[in-house]
Design a protein around this nucleic acid. Structure first.
Lengths: 203, 203
DNA sequence: AGATTATAGTACCAATCAGTATCTTATTAT
DNA sequence: ATAATAAGATACTGATTGGTACTATAATCT
């Protein structure tokens, strides 16, 4: 049962470009907000027919779940990768700050975090979308928590607070910095706030 | 030219209840998000006709500006009043924390800050609404900044950072706490984060 | 009483929405 | 060749949107 793509299947061959649809949907949800985008708009932009869309995704819920997975694998993973570089605790904090403040393209900066936008309107979405939001949030928290535990065991960081709380604190501050930039706050202001907030964790 | 209400005016007397419309609009924008509410919905809930609404408010832009003013006078003012109590710096921080974490009714907690919601979608609104968002943000910042300057001059707080930056920091942390609660984060988590973040300012 | 004025509200408009019935087209199976 | 299968795409449905023409109503003014 090898999942071969050239296997001969009955019926008219598929020409629909799923990746294109997901990319169009992601960028539109990102710039306009997930609650402010219609399926008609996405279908028009992606140049597909609505019945085709419904065949592939079932509806908005399926599309949003797919978009969240795409966002996690392409964007959120970049933050998580910083934690795997085996730098010291303080160096890692610096890397996180500079990634959030300046290392992303302007479009991303002014759009903020797509996951945060989904989270803010969580109750408005379908079941699969809500579940996917929760899964990604949990995953992100877990990776941060494991990283904190590791730097604690290495002796690079000691704190009376639990790793859970510290992970939550760092994620919150990074999230806030991203949304502050998206709200038009000056780069330097956000950098000051983020640096000050994370300074309580440094030795 | 006394602004007498019983002055006899020509034409059919007004029966429309402007306060009711503003209150209906505010609570609906608050719970559903300002970009997810239609004028039809507001008119139906407030039991007024659409032509009547357009006569009074001109359109969505005018209504939103009125709602923002109402929100500022009824809710944002409560936070600002805490700064006028002439308590010490540390006591005032404690009061701010407990106001945000626990002293508001459950509906408000789960809805977050209406001003923050407007701010997040600022570019989607009309000119008057955008201007009003900016005015309220500026006012809020100014009140915090003046308070910081006062406690600095009293010698209750000293810090190498400018009053502007400190004011911005405190507002940001309070904003984040409110939105964290609205996102369903546990009360105790948010209290930990906020307390930790503000601890850098304490002596 | 009749003219004037201003508000209330019905009922409409074109545009857009989510979702689908239906028909066409392109391929494989027999 | 013909049947079976599956995808593409037009074109529709009923509901809702922002916005308004128009009419009915209730008051004052002359």
């Amino acid at each position: 049962m090898i999942n071969q793509k050239n296997i001969k299947k009955k019926g008219r061959p598929k020409t629909i470009d799923l990746e294109k649809i997901k990319n169009v949907a992601m960028s539109t949800y990102w710039s306009d907000g997930p609650t402010n985008v219609s399926l008609n708009e996405i279908c028009n932009k992606a140049k597909i027919s609505k019945p085709g869309f419904y065949r592939e995704f079932g509806g908005e819920d399926g599309l949003m779940k797919s978009v969240l997975l795409l966002y996690k694998n392409s964007l959120i993973q970049q933050i998580l990768n910083i934690l795997q570089l085996e730098k010291t605790f303080d160096e890692t904090l610096d890397l996180l700050i500079s990634y959030v403040i300046g290392n992303r393209d302007k479009e991303h900066i002014k759009n903020g975090c797509l996951l945060a936008k989904f989270r803010q309107s969580r109750s408005k979405f379908g079941k699969k979308t809500q579940e996917q939001i929760d899964i990604i949030l949990k995953e992100r928290h877990l990776v941060f928590e494991l990283w904190i535990k590791k730097v604690k065991s290495k002796g690079e960081f000691s704190c009376s607070l639990s790793s859970k709380v510290v992970a939550n604190y760092i994620i919150s501050q990074l999230d806030y910095a991203v949304s502050g930039l998206a709200n038009g706050e000056k780069n330097s202001n956000i950098k000051n706030i983020l640096t000050l907030a994370l300074s309580v964790l440094r030795t």
